[in-house]
Amino acid sequence: MAVLTTERAAALSGHVAQWGNKLVQLIKTGFNAVLKRAGLEGVTPRVLRQTAAVHMAKGGVPMEDIAQFLGHSNTQTTRQVYARFSPDHLRRAANVLEFGKIRKVQ
C-alpha cells in the first residue's frame, strides 16, 4: 500500500500503471524486458504465480490462506495442486512407518 500511495502521489495521470502520462494497457513489453535483463526464458506471470504458491506451501502457509491469496474460490483446488509441497503433506502416513514401530494413525 505504501508503494501505491507513493506512486499515486507522483502520478502524471489518474492511472496506476502508466508510462509518462499514458495508460499502460499491457505489461507484456515491460515484463519481457525484465525477463531479458534477468536472463530468464520461458517465465510467464502464471509461472511466477505458481512459484509463489509453492514457496508458501513449503513455508507452511495454510492451504486456506494460499487459496485466498491466489483468488481460488474453492480451497480443494489449491489443496489438489499445492498440498504436496506442504511440509505436513503425508506426514501422518510417514509417521506410521517410523522405523518399524506400529502406530495407530491419529
Rank of each mutant, 00 (worst) to 15 (best):
M1C: 07
T5D: 05
A10N: 08
A10M: 07
L12H: 09
S13K: 09
S13E: 03
S13G: 04
H15R: 07
V16D: 06
A17V: 01
Q18W: 00
W19T: 04
L23D: 12
Q25G: 15
Q25V: 15
Q25H: 13
L26F: 15
I27L: 14
K28L: 15
T29Y: 11
G30P: 04
F31T: 03
N32V: 03
A33N: 08
A33K: 10
A33V: 02
V34C: 13
V34N: 14
L35M: 11
A38W: 12
A38N: 05
A38T: 04
G39T: 02
G39L: 05
T44K: 12
T44F: 12
R46A: 08
L48T: 00
Q50P: 00
H55P: 01
H55N: 11
A57K: 00
A57W: 07
M63N: 08
M63K: 07
F69D: 00
G71W: 10
S73I: 02
N74F: 03
N74E: 06
N74V: 05
T75H: 03
V81R: 01
V81Q: 02
V81H: 00
Y82H: 13
Y82C: 11
A83T: 00
R84C: 12
P87Q: 12
P87M: 11
D88E: 14
R91N: 14
A94G: 13
V96A: 14
F99G: 01
G100T: 01
K101H: 08
I102K: 13
K104D: 03
V105D: 15
Q106C: 13
Q106R: 15
